[in-house]
């Protein structure tokens, strides 16, 4: 999937092009419906963005989490708003804790956002190859396909079709 599609918290973004450099303008599709033009200006402390609603400036502090993800503490300049542990999760990767997190008994795939299980494409005990779709989850009126990160076997499926899932809820155990 495209590296330009992903999410931060409940916000889904699809950037029309890869943003490059200190200054530029990019069109972004928000939650699969609204198109927004965003102009940015990056500086030594963070980034300012300009949208049709105004200019907003943020100080960003990057930290590498235990899973090796870069997470940002984001402070809005001129306010006391602080958002912790923000990360732009590229689609396709968003439903895995980490590609490197191997639990003793396999890899537990967890939901990264709340939604409804639309389809389950696999069965317990089935062999699976890397990149093969497993589950489709509907969230924010969009369908998200959860694919396998490894060649292996589906050890257990924790969910049922039609079920609502919460962030962090286990979906599938791979081995």
């Amino acid at each position: 999937m495209s590296a330009l599609k992903g999410q931060v918290g409940a916000w889904h973004f699809d950037f029309a092009k890869l943003p490059i450099g200190l200054h530029g303008i990019v069109q972004v599709k928000i939650n699969e419906k609204d198109q927004l033009m965003v102009e940015w200006f990056k500086d030594a402390q963070g980034i300012s963005i300009k949208t049709e609603h105004g200019v907003f400036s943020f100080d960003l502090l990057g930290e590498v989490s235990e899973e090796g993800l870069v997470q940002y503490q984001v402070k809005q300049r001129g306010s006391s708003e602080v958002f912790s542990s923000l990360h732009f999760l590229t689609s396709g990767a968003e439903l895995f804790e980490s590609q490197n997190t191997k639990l003793k008994h396999g890899i537990k795939i967890k939901a990264q956002m709340p939604g409804k299980v639309l389809k389950i494409l696999i069965k317990e005990g089935q062999a699976i190859t890397e990149g093969e779709p497993m589950i489709v989850i509907e969230a924010m009126k969009m369908e998200n396909q959860v694919s396998s990160v490894h060649n292996g076997k589906v050890k257990k499926i924790f969910i049922e079709q039609g079920q609502a899932v919460e962030t962090g809820e286990a979906l599938v155990l791979l081995e």
Partner: peptide, 10 residues
């Protein structure tokens, strides 16, 4: 805005 900022920055 914060979500857009972090996405672009990253």
């Amino acid at each position: 805005e914060a979500a857009l900022a972090v996405s672009l920055y990253q």
